[in-house]
């Protein structure tokens, strides 16, 4: 199969998948939008130095269990770093701030 045929096959397959999975794609898009809005608030609250989960939750008005989940997801993908401790809590900081 040459490159042109391969590209055509890929386009057809993607079109078919978009049709077959229209509902799940729409649901995932809605979830992504929700996550992006959450992350925007989270990132704003995390600016300005190391913070614990309760401090981020208080600054953002977001629930602390969800803050923890998102901070851990961001940490896994190198967007957040664990930088220290404050009593019983670890402190986290945006990776770009740590690098500065």
């Amino acid at each position: 199969m040459n490159a042109k045929e391969k590209a055509r096959e890929r386009t057809t397959a993607l079109k078919r998948l978009r049709e077959e999975h229209a509902e799940t794609v729409a649901r995932t898009q809605a979830l992504l939008k929700e996550q992006q809005a959450f992350r925007k608030k989270l990132r704003a609250a995390m600016k300005g130095g190391p913070k614990t989960i309760p401090q981020i939750a208080a600054a953002s008005g977001l629930p602390s269990d969800k803050v923890l989940w998102h901070v851990m997801a961001m940490k896994k993908y190198d967007m957040v770093r664990e930088v220290g401790r404050d009593a019983d809590y670890y402190q986290y900081q945006l990776a770009e701030e740590v690098a500065e």
Binding site: P54, S64, D88, Y89, Y90
Partner: peptide
């Protein structure tokens, strides 16, 4: 850590 707030 505990899942509600990351407390040890």
């Amino acid at each position: 850590l505990r899942p509600s707030d990351g407390k040890e």
